[in-house]
Computed example of a mutant assay.
Amino acid sequence: MTTSHDSASRPQGYRGDLTLFFSLAFGVSWVAWATAWALGGPANSPAASGVHLIGAFGPLLAALVLRIRRGRRGEPAPAQVVRFGRGTLLWAPLLLVLASATVWAGVLLAQAAGGPALSLDGIKDTVGDAGGIVAFVAMMLVGGPLGEEPGWRGTVHPRMRATMGRFQAVLVLGVVWSVWHLPLFFLEGTVQYELGLATAGGVLFAVSVVPMAMLIGYAYERGGIVAAIAVHFAGNTTMVLLGVKAAETLALLLGLQALVAVLLLTFAPPRALPRTPRAGAVGAAPEPAVRV
């Protein structure tokens, strides 16, 4: 017979929340991207651009649905949620620089090994094509981090961490996140489409999502959602500015980011997150959310 003590010590799972989240996030994003593909033309064309952008906000919309449902049910937030705090002001810029530095290092190492040369003119052209630095930064924020991180890290990561270790959570979420991107390989006008799924560059790009997820997961546990957005933004923006598409560059970037993420998670881990007791267990007191 299970005692109240056994129930209280057993971590609470969030299988229902995760099932609903993944159904909504994948459903909204993949339907939107399929619609953009059916409309024809590149993703940034007048006909498809709006629908394509909706797809990027699938994780955010799923997170909002879960938040509303939790509020109506009167359920507490997972204990593993990292709240906004003064520590964010320190960790967000530091980790932003680190994420950007890993991309720069991969590009420079690839160039030294005989790969594509870094072009400053290419950076200017990329910013100019976007309509200037302000428009470029806004595009990079809206088109990725803002639409995704409240979902992947702010919603999924804490729920996975309720029953998983840190490495397991970031790896599993990284694989899920990579699969979520797959339809973009068939949508003209995206970086993924230019690479092609059946190429070395395309495969490396898909796999590189996993170490990036590890870095962002570390950032979330250090500095909350702001730090996660900062790292996601830094990685995406630096890759776009430097035109990271060559297979050798992607391979070096994948290895560097994996190495940095493993080192951080192993030797400079954020403070251990608490595990949430099973809801309704006798004598189970709610644990406060972690503040960093």
Rank of each mutant, 00 (worst) to 15 (best):
M1F: 14
T3N: 11
H5S: 14
S9K: 07
R10S: 13
Q12Y: 01
Y14G: 01
Y14A: 01
Y14I: 01
Y14W: 06
R15T: 02
G16E: 08
G16A: 04
F21H: 05
S29H: 12
V31D: 12
V31S: 15
A34I: 00
A38C: 06
P42C: 03
A43M: 09
P46F: 03
A47N: 09
V51Q: 07
I54E: 04
F57G: 07
F57T: 02
F57I: 00
G58V: 02
P59C: 10
L60Q: 12
A62N: 08
A63C: 10
R67G: 10
R70G: 11
R70S: 13
P76W: 03
P78A: 13
Q80L: 05
V81P: 01
R83A: 15
R86S: 12
R86G: 13
G87L: 01
A92H: 11
A92Y: 09
L95Q: 07
L96P: 01
L96F: 15
L98P: 14
L98I: 07
A101F: 10
A101C: 07
T102S: 14
V103D: 09
W104Q: 11
V107D: 03
V107W: 13
L108G: 07
A110P: 05
Q111A: 14
A112Y: 11
G114E: 11
L118H: 08
L118E: 07
I123W: 11
K124Y: 06
D125H: 06
T126N: 13
T126H: 14
G132F: 09
V137L: 14
A138Q: 08
M139E: 14
M139L: 12
V142Y: 06
G147E: 13
E148L: 05
E149Q: 13
P158T: 03
A162D: 10
R166G: 01
F167N: 12
F167G: 06
A169I: 00
V170K: 01
V172G: 14
G174Q: 03
G174L: 02
V175E: 14
S178I: 00
F186V: 01
E194G: 15
L195F: 08
L195R: 04
G196S: 08
G196Y: 08
A198Q: 11
A200E: 13
G201L: 03
L204T: 03
A206V: 01
V207Q: 12
M212H: 11
A213T: 14
M214T: 03
G217V: 00
Y218K: 04
A219L: 05
A219P: 03
Y220W: 04
E221A: 04
R222W: 11
R222I: 00
R222H: 11
A227V: 01
A228K: 02
A228T: 00
A230H: 05
A230R: 02
F233D: 10
N236D: 14
M239W: 05
V240W: 02
L241S: 10
L241W: 13
K245S: 10
A246E: 15
A247G: 11
A251T: 04
L256W: 09
T266F: 04
F267Y: 15
P269Q: 12
P269A: 15
R271N: 05
P274I: 03
P274H: 12
R275F: 06
R275C: 05
G280L: 08
G283P: 02
A284H: 09
E287A: 10
P288K: 10
V290H: 15
V292D: 14
